[in-house]
Each structure stands twice: as C-alpha cells, then as structure tokens.
C-alpha cells in the first residue's frame, strides 16, 4: 500500500479523533445531551422517586440501581446514535466530506475520527453516570462482573454508532437528522427500561416492540452486569447476540447507502455562495 504518503494511518486516525474531540467540546450542545443530561436525569430521578424500589428483570432494586445502568446506556445512545446521525449529516451538507474526498486522506479515516470521538464520549458519559451512581447512591458494582459490563458497553456502543452512521446515510439533509434521530431514540427509550420499568404490567405488543430493537437488550445486559442479584460473570448471550445482529444490519445499510456528497439543494448558506455584493 501507499504508506509512503504522509503520516501513518494509525496516527492519522488518532489525529482525527483528537480533532473531533476538540470540536465536540467547543460545541456545548452535543456535550449537554451526551454527558450532562444523563447525569442530571439520574440526580433528578433519584431525588423525585427517593428510595422506592423497582421490580426489574434482575430483581427488586433501588431506584438508583435501576436508573444508573439505564441512564449510562442512554448516554451511550445519545453520544453515538443521535450525535453521529446529526454530525455526519451536517458534515455532509456543509461539504466537509466532499472536501476530504479531494485530499489524499482516505475518507474512512475521517469517518473513523468522527466515530471514534463519539465512542470516546459515550465512554465518558458512562463513566460519569456510573461513578455518580456508585459514589452518591451506593449502586452495586462488582469486579467479577466488570467484563460483562465492558462487553455489553462495547457491543452496545458499536450497534448504536453503526446505526448513527446508517441513519445519517438514510437522512437526506442535516435539517431532518435531529428530528429523525430523536423520533427514533426517545419513544424507544420508553419501551426499553430507560425511564420506566414495566416488566409484567405492560401490554405484550409494547414488550414486543422493546424486544425487537436493540436498546432494551443493551439496557438489560448492562443492568444485569451491575445487578446485586446476578451471578458472575453475568453475561446475557442472547441479548448480546441481538446487539451484534443489529450491528451487522446497520453496517450493511451504512455501507450501501452512505453518501459523501450533499443532496441537491441541501448545501447551507455557507456552502454555495450567493452573488450579493
């Protein structure tokens, strides 16, 4: 291969992840939704519902024990799925992806930078929520189940990052991306044990919807690994399998549908310049 050109691929990927991280911190809105909002929700939900208990798939637990893994997963979904869908379609509409294709930088390296940064932010969000839960609310965390937490986290983040790219590929313009992403993730969160748990009480079709999509499997896999009742190593292979299956489908959609060029008429005012003088 043509490795003689410029820096090595690995160092270019690292460089682009760091650049995207820098951009992330300079745009407060992404940081708010991916990092601050889940932490704030954990504080609010625990304050509102106090020391009630919840019946979950993994037993009778405190509110904090229920919400900590759920909101950690929600942070991951925001940082990967929502942010990638929005950021990639903005970068396409603004012609950044187009510019990249005119340089010797392999376009996948630019994508890897954006995706890598999103995954990094997802990890930060998880650490923030879990740390708060453990330190402030005495949420259970066990060393022997840490591998199960990590595996659920990696597979879940991969699935949602893949679908973030896929959604950007399916969305025509950046203007539509935030609405579409939120219209997908918010209703899904309600049937996926993120905000409420409804084991047994919910209509069967709602459970079916929840079980069809990956979010609920992600929440339960991660929650099982943090549950005080589960047995180490606390892996849930079937649910993890669903995450992998969704990743495969998302990757196929992304590979087939991803566009580098802005849709006709999608370029912003900053793109095609007017002739005003």
């Amino acid at each position: 291969m043509d490795n003689s050109l410029g820096a090595s691929r690995v160092s270019l990927v690292v460089r682009h992840i760091r650049a995207q991280n820098r951009i992330f911190w300079r745009v407060p809105i992404g940081a708010f939704f991916a990092l601050f909002l889940p932490v704030m929700m954990l504080v609010l939900f625990v304050a509102l519902f106090g020391s009630d208990t919840y019946t979950t798939e993994y037993g009778e637990v405190s509110r904090a024990q229920f919400y900590t893994p759920a909101l950690a997963v929600f942070a991951v979904a925001s940082a990967t799925f929502t942010n990638l869908a929005i950021n990639l379609s903005i970068r396409r509409d603004e012609g950044i992806l187009r510019r990249v294709r005119g340089t010797p930088l392999p376009p996948w390296i630019y994508l890897a930078g954006v995706i890598g940064s999103a995954v990094y932010m997802a990890l930060l969000g998880t650490v923030a929520v879990v740390t708060l839960g453990v330190v402030a609310y005495g949420v259970n965390i066990e060393l022997t189940k840490l591998p199960a937490m990590l595996v659920a986290l990696v597979l879940g983040a991969t699935a949602f990052a893949t679908w973030g790219v896929a959604l950007a590929a399916l969305t025509r313009t950046a203007a539509a991306a935030p609405a579409v992403a939120n219209a997908v993730i918010l209703p899904l969160a309600f049937v996926s044990n993120v905000f409420v748990s409804f084991e047994g009480e919910a209509p069967a079709w709602l459970l079916l919807v929840g079980d069809t999509f990956p979010l609920r499997h992600f929440v339960i896999s991660f929650g099982e690994a943090m549950s005080p009742f589960s047995e180490a190593p606390a892996f849930l292979p079937e649910r993890l399998g669903v995450l992998v299956a969704w990743t495969v489908v998302g990757a196929l959609v992304a590979l087939r549908k991803f566009r580098w060029e802005p849709a006709v008429g999608a370029s912003s005012a900053r793109g095609r310049r007017g002739n005003s003088r």
Binding site: R22, R91, G95, R270
Partner: peptide, 12 residues
C-alpha cells in the same frame, strides 16, 4: 482543490 462549496470543520 479549492471547491466552490466545501466546508471545513469550522470549530477548528
């Protein structure tokens, strides 16, 4: 290449 309509990561 200096394209007519190519953005750049403008937060940089």
């Amino acid at each position: 290449i200096v394209l007519q309509a190519a953005g750049v990561d403008r937060e940089l």
